[in-house]
Each structure stands twice: as structure tokens, then as C-alpha cells.
Amino acid sequence: MLTIEHLNQYYGESHILWDVDLEVEQGRCTCLMGRNGVGKTTTLGCIMGLVPVRSGQIVFNGQDIVRLAAEERAGLGIGYVPQGRQIFPLLTVEENLRIGLNTGRRKRKKIPELVFELFPVLAEMLGRRGGDLSGGQQQQLAIGRALVLEPSLLILDEPTEGIQPNIVHEIGEIIRRLQREAGMTVLLVEQKLPFVRQVADRFFIMDRGRVMARGHLDDLTDDLVRDYLTV
């Protein structure tokens, strides 16, 4: 579904991403892993059109999207939940959700019922401002906002960061449900190994802007964890 080939990215004269190759298989959950500052979020920014690419290809469903604007990529069916959630704190839950209605592949006037099936707390808080929600509720809102697009690919950047354990487990169950019932493909950046083992099928490990290891989750050995993931 998504293939990245020889991706290079610079900040000024600093070479950040070095010939990154990445494949996300349809219907699978792929986890991009690595310590802080190795280029994971920059890679997601390149995929979403938020960070300029110096060279390389990003192919989504057979189309090279490198030259497309961010909103055009969303319109192709890519939903994105950024690190830190980035909801609109002064807008209500309903207003946050409605922002995505005209961005997805199918222009809608109504928030899909799936959002409220997955996150019933959002239905109870439609009139509450986003900034008044707890951290876990804000993360649910951020994921719900991405799902309003009805994406075929959902990209999540550190979705468990600062979230209480019961909500972390719930988000993991929702990811698996989206794969199982909706056939959704997921690309996840995550550092918490228990969560990765709960949801992911495949992994890629980055270090210093390069992909250093990849494979099925069963191939994620203690040696790889020690060499590239422990602090």
C-alpha cells in the first residue's frame, strides 16, 4: 500500500534521513521504532507532505505522492494523528471532528457513527471544549478526527505518550478492531514495547536517519532491542 524508496531529507545542510526504504503492507500494522531523534517523526512528516523531501519516492496505492500537497494526500485516504495530538483546544469536540468532513475521499455532512462506536466518550462530550478533556480523551479525539476522513491508511505518531494504562490498552484494541473489521492499514511510531507487541505485525528500526533492521514482529530480538531501543 505504501512504499518509500531512497528517501533523503535535510534540515538546512544537516542530512537527516539517509536513503530510507520502508514498506507498509495492506491490512497490516507496521511499527517504526527507534530512540528519540533518529528520524521517525521526520519520516512521517515526509509521508504527509509536512516536511520537504530532497530526493526519493513515496508511493501510495501505486501513485508517487511526493509532489502532492498535504491536503491532497489526506484526500487520497491517509489519516494522520500527530505526536502531541494537536487538537484545537478552544473548539468543541464536535467542531474538532467536523474539521475533517470535507477533507476525506468522500465529502460528508455527518460524522461517521464508527467514531462514536469506537469512542463513546466523545459522543457524551460533543459540546465540551477539546482543551478541557483529559490527555486520554484528547488522544481519542485526535484519532477520531483522523477516522472522520475514513482513511485506508492510518498513521499514528506516539499514540501512547502521556496516556494512562487503561486508555493505552483500549487504543491497542481499537487498532486491532480497525484492522479486523475495516481492513484498515496502520503505520505506527511507538517506543513502548508491550504496546508494539499488542498491535504490530511488522517493524522497522531507525538509527541516525537510517533503517537498520526490519522484519516480522517475531524477528524483534533482545539483541535488536538492546542495540537500538534501550536508553
Score class of each variant (00 low, 15 high):
90 L>K: 10
146 A>P: 12
157 D>T: 09
59 V>F: 04
62 G>V: 10
133 L>N: 05
134 S>V: 01
131 G>L: 12
45 G>E: 11
65 I>N: 09
80 Y>S: 03
50 L>P: 00
132 D>G: 07
108 R>H: 04
48 M>L: 11
121 V>R: 04
73 R>A: 07
135 G>Q: 07
82 P>F: 02
71 E>S: 12
143 I>L: 07
157 D>F: 07
69 A>P: 13
53 V>M: 11
87 I>K: 01
135 G>N: 07
45 G>P: 02
152 S>D: 13
106 R>Q: 14
63 Q>S: 08
96 N>L: 08
47 I>P: 00
68 L>Y: 09
67 R>L: 14
111 I>T: 03
59 V>G: 02
46 C>L: 12
129 R>S: 12
88 F>A: 02
100 G>H: 04
115 V>K: 08
90 L>G: 05
94 E>Q: 13
95 E>G: 03
141 L>I: 04
51 V>I: 14
78 I>D: 15
131 G>V: 06
135 G>H: 08
115 V>R: 10
42 T>G: 03
142 A>Y: 10
50 L>I: 00
140 Q>P: 00
73 R>H: 03
139 Q>G: 11
65 I>G: 04
94 E>F: 00
57 Q>S: 12
61 N>L: 12
116 F>I: 01
44 L>I: 15
131 G>Q: 14
139 Q>F: 05
134 S>T: 04
63 Q>D: 14
81 V>I: 10
141 L>F: 07
67 R>Q: 15
50 L>A: 09
96 N>H: 08
131 G>E: 08
94 E>I: 03
141 L>H: 06
104 G>R: 02
84 G>C: 12
92 T>A: 14
148 V>Q: 01
56 G>V: 08
74 A>H: 01
108 R>N: 01
143 I>S: 01
67 R>N: 15
141 L>T: 03
115 V>N: 08
51 V>Y: 07
50 L>Q: 06
118 L>F: 05
160 T>R: 00
50 L>T: 01
71 E>Y: 15
38 V>F: 08
65 I>R: 08
118 L>E: 02
124 E>C: 01
124 E>P: 01
100 G>L: 01
104 G>F: 09
124 E>S: 11
87 I>W: 00
56 G>E: 14
136 G>Q: 12
139 Q>L: 06
84 G>H: 11
41 T>V: 02
116 F>K: 00
121 V>F: 00
36 N>F: 03
138 Q>D: 15
36 N>P: 02
116 F>T: 00
45 G>T: 04
158 E>P: 00
35 R>V: 01
130 G>D: 07
58 I>N: 05
39 G>C: 05
96 N>A: 06
69 A>Y: 13
139 Q>K: 11
131 G>I: 06
87 I>M: 07
65 I>P: 03
90 L>I: 10
147 L>K: 09
149 L>Q: 14
102 N>V: 10
113 E>G: 02
80 Y>D: 02
91 L>M: 15
94 E>V: 05
90 L>E: 15
39 G>H: 11
88 F>H: 08
110 K>N: 08
149 L>A: 05
